[in-house]
């Protein structure tokens, strides 16, 4: 059975149909999930019928020409935010505010660096991780997640420099004490 399926997937008709369905699925991302699912199912049925008629792909090509571009189909689909028609079902909008909040928080971390850097470091660490996650998941584009990452990275670098500076200062301070002690022993010796 699986051999038969893999043989079928090698026909030009199957390849054309799968490429179109892939493009359509991509074009419909961000649209109402139910509309997307039903549209894909209807179009997949048509393409499978066409494959059965002509595995070489001529019929699939004709069906695709009739269906039109995936962009044209996506253009008439409802956006995800308003698709379900219930106020509770707006996860996309909630995520947007989450992205904005993360960017603001990373800005706060940047300002806090100069006041109390341990707090800034913790905030920056969190916003850095969130920024990376949002870079791949945000529906608002990549500008805000990139800003969050940049702000957080600046804070983390500044904090790292501050820690290195502190350690260096402590080391210098303790070596002065050793020199002072040594000097004291020399004076008291004879």
């Amino acid at each position: 059975m699986s051999t038969e399926k893999s043989k079928m997937s090698e026909t030009p008709g199957q390849q054309l149909a799968e490429a179109y369905l892939r493009d359509l699925e991509r074009a419909l991302s961000g649209t109402d999930p139910r509309e997307r699912e039903e549209t894909l199912a209807e179009i997949e049925d048509q393409l499978r019928d066409a494959e059965a008629v002509d595995p070489q792909g001529a019929e699939v090509r004709r069906v695709i020409d009739r269906l039109g571009s995936v962009e044209a189909i996506a253009a008439v689909a409802s956006p995800d935010e308003h698709g379900t028609g219930t106020p509770a079902a707006v996860p996309g909008r909630q995520k947007d505010w989450f992205v904005i909040g993360t960017t603001i928080l990373s800005g706060v971390a940047l300002v806090t660096t100069f006041l109390f850097f341990p707090v800034a470091a913790v905030i920056a660490l969190v916003t850095f991780v969130l920024g990376i996650v949002q870079l791949f998941t945000s529906r608002m584009g990549k500008v805000l997640p990139v800003l969050s990452i940049v702000f957080s990275a600046i804070v983390l670098v500044l904090v790292a420099l501050a820690i290195i500076g502190l350690l260096a200062w402590q080391e210098t301070d303790s070596s002065y004490e050793i020199i002072e002690d040594d000097a004291g022993e020399v004076e008291e010796g004879p």
């Binding site: 139910r34 509309e35 039903e38 549209t39 209807e42 039109g68 008439v76 409802s78």
Partner: peptide
């Protein structure tokens, strides 16, 4: 209909 594929999101909405 210029593109027949554009009918399907509409049918889904009508059903909803």
């Amino acid at each position: 209909l210029e593109s027949q594929g554009t009918l399907y999101p509409l049918l889904s909405r009508l059903r909803k």
